[in-house]
Design a protein around this nucleic acid. Sequence first.
DNA 1: GTCCGGATTGGCAGCGCTGCCAAATCTTGC
DNA 2: GCAAGATTTGGCAGCGCTGCCAATCCGGAC
Lengths: 353, 353
Amino acid sequence: MDEGGNEAFAAQDETLRDAAFSDGAVRRPITLADVAREARVGESTVSRVLRSHGSFSEKTRARVEAAVSRLGYVPNRIAGTLASTGSRLIGIVIPSLTNIVFPDLLRGATAALEQEGFQSVIAVTDYDQDREEAVVGSLLSWRPAGLIVTGLEHNPGTRRRLVASGVRVAELLDTDGPGLDIVVGYSNRAAGEASARHLAGRGYRRIGYIGHDLSKDKRAAKRYAGFRDGLNQAGLALAGEERVASPSSVEAGRHGLEALLARVPDLDAAYFSNDDMALGGYFHCLAHGLPVPGRLALFGYNGLDVGRLMPQPLATIRTPRVEAGATAARLLCTGAPGTVVDLGFELIEGATA
Amino acid sequence: MDEGGNEAFAAQDETLRDAAFSDGAVRRPITLADVAREARVGESTVSRVLRSHGSFSEKTRARVEAAVSRLGYVPNRIAGTLASTGSRLIGIVIPSLTNIVFPDLLRGATAALEQEGFQSVIAVTDYDQDREEAVVGSLLSWRPAGLIVTGLEHNPGTRRRLVASGVRVAELLDTDGPGLDIVVGYSNRAAGEASARHLAGRGYRRIGYIGHDLSKDKRAAKRYAGFRDGLNQAGLALAGEERVASPSSVEAGRHGLEALLARVPDLDAAYFSNDDMALGGYFHCLAHGLPVPGRLALFGYNGLDVGRLMPQPLATIRTPRVEAGATAARLLCTGAPGTVVDLGFELIEGATA
DNA sequence: GTCCGGATTGGCAGCGCTGCCAAATCTTGC
DNA sequence: GCAAGATTTGGCAGCGCTGCCAATCCGGAC
C-alpha cells in the first residue's frame, strides 16, 4: 500500500529569490573590503571588530556593525582559516550512523565543540579500516584543529597519516590498548567481564552469546573476549554462541537467539553484543512465551533508554557515550597530550537477569 | 554499581610521534610548491595531476605521484577552495541527533555526497528556530556548495540568509507547503490522514492521540492536524489526547499512554506521534496485560526496524528517510532549481491495529 | 604649548592553491 | 624537412582574510 507517492517536479515560487536581486546589481559576493569601504575604515579594523580581537573604539564598532548589517555581509571562514594559522574545524570519524551510540557520541562532541567555537565535520567508515584511512585523509585536507576517531585499532596508513599531520587526535569508546594522543572511553574488556561475573553470580550456568560480525567491530570483540574470560574465572564456559553475519540490529538479535536456542535448548542465559540485539532477544522470548528471566535471562550492553522502559527493565551496562564525546571535544581544545580518561561504566541490574 | 571508573591520566607512548620528527627538520607543512620542486615540474602541473584535470603526460603523472608519496603531501582544501570558485562542502542542518530518523537522513545524504566528492558539515538545532538561524549563518560562512535543512518552516532571518547567500538549498522530510528551492520528502498531513482512515476503517471508534511537544516539531504537528481531519472525514472525533512536555521518546510514549488511559479508560485505539512513542505504549500494554489490539490498538509513524520485530509488528507508516537524504544530496549537486520530489510513504498494517 | 605613552587605525604581504594565458614541446601530413 | 596544429607545461595574479608593523590620534603631564 503506497500512498502520497506521486513524483512531482514543479517550479517553486521565485518571489523571495528575485527579491534578493531586486537592486539589479550583479551579485558579486560581499567581502570584508566592501564592508571597510562602506564603514569608511580599514580592512584590518573591520577584521578586528568582527573577531573582537585587538582594540578599537566603540564608535568604530558601531560603524562597522551597521555596515555589516546594511550589506548583509557573511565572513568567509575559508579565507580566514587560510590566512590565520589554525582552523576551527574538528573532524569526527565514526563507524556507523545506524546504531544510536554514534549519534550519541556526536551529540556530546558537537555540543561541546560549539561552545568552544568549533564546527564539526563528520565522516562515516562503515566499520571498514580502509575507508577509515581514506576519510581520515579527506578530513586532514581541511586542516582541522583536531580529529576524533572511534576506537584504538587503525590501519598502519591511518596511524601514519594521523601522526604525520601533527593534529591532535582523540580516540574514543575504548581504553583497552595504547592510544596515539588523547583517549576517552571505558574498558570494553572489563565490561564483558563484569557482565559474565554478574550472570555467574546470579547462578546462571548455561550461558550463551549472541553477537554480530566481530571481525570489524573491535570493541564488541573485546567485550566478547572479556566475557569469556569472566566466565572462565567463574569456572564456567560458554554454553554456545551465535554470530549473525550482519551489523548489530534488533532483527539480528531476535533471529540470533532463535537460532542459538534451536542448537542449545537448555540455555539459561543469553549475553548479547548490545542492547539492540538484546531487545530482539526479548521480543523472541515474548513471542514464544519464554519467561524472562525464569526460563532465560537476558543481558545487553550500552544502557539505551529503550531497555529501561521494557516491561522488565533490561539488565545491561550503561556506557557514557555522550560524555565521552563531550570530554574528548574539550580535551582536544585544551587538554594535555597523552591524556587518558577512563569514564567507566555502570552495571544496571534490571529485571531480565 | 560503578566499575572500571578510575579517572586515569597518563602520558602515552611517544614513539610514533617522535618518529615523525626523526629527520630533525623543522616541521613546516608540505605544500604543493614543495611537491613541484621535488618532482621538478611546475606548480600548476602538480595541481593538474592531483585533480586529474587538464592534460599531462603519463611520465609527469608518475613523477608527481612519486614526489607526493615521498613527501607525504596532503593537499590543503582550504586553499584550494579559496582559489577556485565553489567549495565541495554541503551543510546539513538537523533538529536532533536523539531520534534515529535524523541519523538516517544523514546516512543517506553523506553516502550520496561522498560519491559526488563532497564533504558534509553538520549542525544541530535542537528544534529551535533561533538556533537554526545561527547555525545556518555559521554554515554559510564556510561557503558551502549547498545546504540541506529539515522542514519548510524557518525564521524570516533564516530565509533571508538562505536566499541572499545564493547557495542551493534542499528542504527535507516535508512537502506540505512552499519551499525555497529543492524540496524532498513526503506529506506529513497525508500520513496523519491515512493513519486516521486506517484506524477508522478497522472499526475503532474511541481513538486517542499521544504526542510530544508539537510547538517545535512542525512535522509532528502536521501529522496531528492531518490525523484529526482524517477522523472528522470518517465522522469521528479524537476521544482524548495526551501531550508529553518533552521530546519524543519511548519513555514519553509509555507514560503518555498511561496518563491518557487514566483519563479516558474506554479508549480502543492510540495514535502516537512516532514509533518510539508507540513502542513505549506497547510496553505499557505488555506491562499491564492489556491485549493489543483486542483491548487497545496502537499506531505509530516512521516504520523503524524495531517495530517490525516486536512480537506483534507495529502498525505504522514507513517513511523513506535515507532515500530522502540521498535524493536531496544528488539534487543539490545536479538538480534543477525548484525541483520538488514527493517520495511518498507506505502504510504498514502490522498486527497492533 | 610640547612631549610622551598608550590606544586606535590602515597598509600590505602573504596563507596555498587554482585559472588563465603564453611558451615550449611534440605530432602529423606533405 | 618544415609548417600547422595539438599537446603539454610553467608563470603568475588573484581568491578573502589575518598578522605584522608603522602611522596616527588622543589625553594628560610637564
